[in-house]
Design a protein around this nucleic acid. Sequence first.
DNA 1: TATTGTTATACTCTATAACTATA
DNA 2: TATAGTTATAGAGTATAACAATA
Lengths: 143, 143
Amino acid sequence: MARTINNPLNAFSGYHLRRASSACMAELAHELEPMSLRPAQASVLLLIDANPDVRQGAVGRLLGIASANMTPLVSRLEERALLRRHRIDGRSHGLRLSKAGHALAARVKKAVLAHEQSILKRVPAAQHTAFLAALKSLGEDEG
Amino acid sequence: MARTINNPLNAFSGYHLRRASSACMAELAHELEPMSLRPAQASVLLLIDANPDVRQGAVGRLLGIASANMTPLVSRLEERALLRRHRIDGRSHGLRLSKAGHALAARVKKAVLAHEQSILKRVPAAQHTAFLAALKSLGEDEG
DNA sequence: TATTGTTATACTCTATAACTATA
DNA sequence: TATAGTTATAGAGTATAACAATA
């Protein structure tokens, strides 16, 4: 090595939080690639799978995806015949997975579960609960 | 409330890792806004501050920024007279902060330290060390 | 031949504003 | 008046390929 660089960010949990998230998301994206799904699409698929006929806006609010960005995302899944939009009332769409959508959601679940195990492997088992709780409190809406 | 939505992602640390990171980065971006700096620019500034004459490529490698993306980032900081590029050899640039760059780096440090405190406030003090260690192991290059 | 930096390009994610239709 | 969804657009982050200059 030519020279060791001093990294003043190394003591900051915020810095490592970002790095950890980026690394894990890249891994997940790689595991979802064979299904031609990106993480955001996969999360929408799982959410609809668990909540048949959920409204599009409710999915976006829960996942933090703006409604303007939900439209093309859901349209893409509809084009692939993974889900169907159906009218709930004049202005709302309910989302429901097709048979192919349910099948793909099952594959996604397996991939996500495997990914979760690979994450938890790197954290001491005794700290799993506290680690998850810390992340949850940091991700809450107000902060 | 109309209906409680079942969130099958709620049990996953990967999901909350991403949410926590997004929320914290948004907070940091907000705190850096008065300095007209985005988080990536601020991290480059702090790294140069701690490593005078560091090569541009070394900064990028450490922070995970591709060299093609370092060029416009550093150019922007140079345009603002926060740093100067100087030749180390025929193909390398060393980066050094100007007086204004050092002054801004000092402001950035304060903001980052305050942000770090606001993060740690939400994690029980007894878990700070373990939390940071877990994040570090998740962010390591191989994963 | 490998490395440093640059340019151009493209794709994803995110954010905003303006709009239609409906409650 | 507020809500649900759409459209268009723009910015930021990230990724690759091609290139020049240099080691």
